[in-house]
Simulated scan of single mutants.
Amino acid sequence: MKIDVRFSVEGLGDAELSGATAVVIDVLRATTSMVQALASGAKAIYPTASTEEAVKLLQSIGRDDTLLCGERRTRRIEGYHLGNSPSEFTAEVVAGKRLIMNTTNGTRAFLAAESADRVIAAAFNNLGAVTVAVAGVERLVIACAGRSGAFALEDTLCAGHLIRRLRAAGTDPLILTDGAIAAEALADAFPVGDTLASTAAGRDLAEAGLGDDVADCARFDVHSVVPELDDRVIRLPHGG
């Protein structure tokens, strides 16, 4: 298996993604919230690149059983039903609902990766299930959402743990790009919980009174779901 880790989705295009499986990671907090939402029974998640696109899509698919979700500068977007905290996406709130989601980095990362043969959402919360789901692929591109086009330690750390899991599962040989080598080294060097709290995104969340989100996002293997993007909609494949 050849593994590439991209520290952001800037410049990620068809040449890198054609024929590959892409794993999109936005630990703080979009992919963690997506995993939580679908594990709680949400029907589907529609990632959008802007609030304007989200509102237009809501008008198109209808307001019945549809919730607007997302954030700007960590805060819930005005007029939206939900923000981007994993704890908001409970079964009582989202079961049977369609979610239109718009976040600063994560939803845009899915749209940037959509030309891959398969696009999967990963976080620490579902890392074991993702490991199993991608174990047999020939080429894996791990696309870190990053932070406004720049490196985000928490996403790369999660990518490194995915590589560690694949190595431990006996997925050989692993052929790593320089980015993948660096990600695995970070996973070996930094403890997840303390590191997430110390990142720029973690500090921003704490300052906004959302420090509990960081702890939620640092938990390993809470869920066994593997969300996948298909035709710009993120769902659980085969209803699983």
Rank of each mutant, 00 (worst) to 15 (best):
F110V: 12
G19H: 06
C144M: 12
A197V: 13
N125W: 11
A201Y: 06
L127R: 07
V24L: 00
A44L: 12
A122I: 05
A122R: 09
A201I: 01
L12V: 15
A22T: 00
E154H: 10
L166W: 05
L153P: 06
A168T: 15
A185I: 07
N125M: 12
E88D: 02
A49C: 06
P86E: 04
A183K: 00
A159Y: 01
G11Y: 04
V35F: 03
E184M: 14
T195E: 02
T66S: 11
R108L: 14
E207W: 03
L174E: 03
S40Q: 10
G128S: 08
P47S: 13
A206C: 12
V137I: 08
E138S: 15
V23H: 00
V192D: 06
T195Y: 06
D212G: 15
T195F: 08
A109V: 12
D14R: 07
R108Q: 14
R139V: 02
D14E: 09
L174V: 13
I120D: 10
G79K: 10
V130E: 10
A206H: 15
R118T: 07
T66F: 07
G136V: 08
A135H: 05
V225Y: 11
R108N: 12
G83D: 03
T90A: 04
R203H: 12
L153N: 05
P227G: 13
E138V: 04
P47M: 08
A189F: 05
R118W: 13
D212W: 11
V233P: 04
K56C: 00
L38E: 09
A182P: 06
G62M: 01
D64C: 03
L17A: 02
G19Y: 00
A197L: 14
A150F: 05
R147K: 12
D26I: 14
F89L: 02
L57V: 11
I181M: 11
V5R: 00
G146S: 08
G83C: 01
A123N: 06
N125D: 05
E207Y: 05
G96M: 00
R139D: 03
D14N: 04
V225G: 13
D204N: 15
L68M: 12
G239H: 13
V5Y: 02
D117Y: 05
G240H: 14
E228M: 10
S85K: 01
A122Q: 13
R203P: 11
L176F: 12
A197G: 07
F151S: 08
V192A: 10
D204T: 11
P237W: 04
Q36I: 02
A116E: 02
R139I: 02
V23T: 01
T199L: 08
V23D: 01
A30V: 00
V23E: 00
R72A: 10
L176E: 07
E114G: 04
R164H: 15
E10R: 06
A44T: 15
A150I: 05
V94R: 00
A145Q: 02
D194M: 10
A112D: 06
L229Y: 09
P47R: 04
R108Y: 13
M1N: 05
G128E: 03
A187C: 10
S60I: 12
T131D: 08
H223D: 14
D194N: 08
G146R: 06
E228T: 06
L236H: 13
D231G: 11
A168Q: 14
D231Y: 01
E16S: 01
T104M: 09
H238F: 13
D26K: 00
P86Y: 03
G146K: 04
G13R: 10
K2G: 03
L57K: 10
G136E: 04
A180H: 12
E52S: 14
G128D: 04
